[in-house]
C-alpha cells in the first residue's frame, strides 16, 4: 500500500480535537485533523471564504470552525455548512498500524482531485 500512500508519521502526533500542518513545497499546505471521536481527516489548510488556516480552528464533531470568520467546514466533505457556500479540497487519508497515510497524488495537487 505504500506506493501511492505517503506515510506522514504516527497518529499519536496529533492530539484528539486538534489539527497539525504539513507544508508542501511548491504546493498548498495541508491540515491533518484528529477528531474527539478518533477519526482523521486531511484538508487543504485554507478556508474557502478568505483562506483562513482551518488547522487553527476549534474542532467539534466532524466540523472545524474557521478562526477568521467562524465559517463551519465539514471535515468529511470540505463543504461549508449552514448558510455559507464553498468547498475546500479534501485529501484521501488512511490509518494503518498506528500510522497516518495521505494519498500522494492528492497531496501534490489537491485541486485536481476536486475537479
Amino acid at each position: 500500500m505504500h506506493g501511492d500512500w505517503l506515510d506522514i508519521g504516527p497518529k499519536t502526533q496529533i492530539e484528539p480535537g486538534t489539527a497539525r500542518t504539513l507544508p508542501v513545497e511548491g504546493g498548498e499546505e495541508i491540515a491533518v485533523f484528529h477528531t474527539m471521536r478518533g477519526e482523521f481527516f486531511a484538508l487543504v489548510n485554507a478556508c474557502p471564504h478568505k483562506q483562513g488556516p482551518l488547522s487553527q480552528g476549534i474542532v467539534h464533531g466532524d466540523v472545524v470552525t474557521c478562526p477568521l470568520h467562524n465559517w463551519n467546514i465539514s471535515l468529511r466533505s470540505g463543504n461549508a455548512l449552514g448558510a455559507d457556500e464553498g468547498c475546500v479540497p479534501t485529501i484521501p487519508l488512511r490509518v494503518d498500524a498506528g500510522r497516518i497515510y495521505l494519498k500522494r497524488s492528492a497531496v501534490l495537487s489537491p485541486r485536481a482531485v476536486l475537479a
Binding site: 506522514i8 508519521g9 499519536t12 502526533q13 486538534t18 497539525r20 504539513l22 513545497e25 491533518v32
Partner: peptide
C-alpha cells in the same frame, strides 16, 4: 511544541519528519 511545529514538510516525493512521536 506540537502547536507550533509542522508534522513534516513534503518536498515533492520526499518526507522529512521534523518530529516523530511528539
Amino acid at each position: 511544541r506540537d502547536l507550533h511545529a509542522h508534522i513534516a514538510t513534503v518536498r515533492p516525493l520526499v518526507v522529512t519528519p521534523e518530529m516523530e512521536n511528539a
